[in-house]
């Protein structure tokens, strides 16, 4: 019975909390429709700029982040767009003014006006203005809140992404080393031929005789610790080994130790988390495979 009475009072009171929640919801839907129309009218559907569908009036940090990323994409494409004033920059500034100044000011004015309205018996002509202020201010504030929450919630995902990127860079460095080694191995192979032609082998001339292919010949001068005939060499976090499969093929194996908290790949036999690449070398071709 009490609930029904309260509900009847709420329905009759246009500034009741239930109504205000409805006003804010309606304003958010309207603002969403307006900004989507604005995006289409402004022709901001450019796939290179990943901010077209951001909540334009309410998330300045998202807009600023979009501009930063877009500048990175443009730099990747060879353009230098840094520091150029554009519609996106203007929108970011407008979003700051609306989200952090106009919206809160309207909301505070609405709250205070509603409080005064509650203390008095009647307000002539004031209710629509109060409702509009609460709707606009409340919707602006409600749109601002999800972005900080997203930034906090996605922390773990970004930590993993940064780790994977570090591993990707380590793997890139390893692949470059292995590629140069493979090409150097081909040079050694072709140099090993007999003066009359033929006789090519993965052996290398050492002191007038042919010895096994040495790692220092493949790594280049000054790269290996010593010019040994060992098939295994460790440089920093990278480990290399070579194996001669057949007369005309050679396999190079490269490992790089992962940074904590470890690799996506399982640990190797020595218990270390590593990323691994295998390179098959023939006299003319190089075939690189990332081992998962």
């Amino acid at each position: 019975m009490k609930f029904r009475i309260d509900l009847q009072r709420a329905v009759k009171d246009p500034l009741h909390g239930i109504w205000i929640a409805c006003y804010i919801g309606a304003a958010m839907i309207a603002l969403g429709a307006v900004q989507e129309s604005f995006v289409h009218v402004a022709g901001w559907g450019d796939p290179a700029i990943p901010i077209a569908h951001a909540v334009l009036p309410a998330q300045p940090a998202v807009l600023a982040g979009g501009i930063e990323v877009a500048e990175g994409i443009l730099q990747f494409s060879g353009h230098t767009a840094r520091g150029v004033w554009s519609g996106y920059v203007t929108t970011t500034l407008m979003a700051m003014l609306i989200s952090y100044m106009v919206g809160p000011a309207l909301l505070v004015w609405g709250i205070r006006a509603r409080a005064r309205h509650r203390q008095q018996i009647a307000v002539r002509g004031g209710v629509p203005a109060i409702a509009a202020a609460l709707a606009l201010g409340g919707s602006t504030l409600a749109a601002v809140v999800p972005a900080p929450l997203y930034a906090l919630v996605s922390h773990r995902t970004y930590t993993m992404l940064e780790r994977d990127h570090r591993h990707s860079e380590a793997l890139d460095d390893l692949s470059v080393e292995l590629y140069v080694m493979a090409r150097n191995a081909q040079v050694e192979y072709h140099r090993s031929g007999e003066p009359r032609g033929g006789g090519h082998t993965w052996l290398t001339p050492v002191h007038g005789r042919k010895g096994p292919l040495r790692m220092c010949d493949l790594l280049g001068p000054g790269r290996g610790p010593q010019c040994t005939e060992s098939a295994h060499v460790t440089i920093g976090r990278q480990m290399f080994s070579l194996r001669i499969e057949r007369a005309d093929s050679l396999t190079l194996h490269g490992l790089v130790v992962c940074e904590p908290p470890g690799c996506p790949a399982p640990a190797d036999t020595s218990g270390q988390d590593t990323l691994s690449m295998v390179v098959g070398v023939t006299p003319l071709n190089v075939n690189m495979i990332f081992e998962e």
Binding site: A61, G65, G66, V69, E71, Q75, A151
Partner: peptide, 21 residues
């Protein structure tokens, strides 16, 4: 929340832009 968002997003998007470049 807004202050944290600015700090977090600025470092993340700068990292993303550097990574893309």
């Amino acid at each position: 929340g807004i202050s944290a968002e600015f700090m977090v997003l600025s470092s993340r998007t700068r990292w993303q832009a550097d990574m893309i470049a």
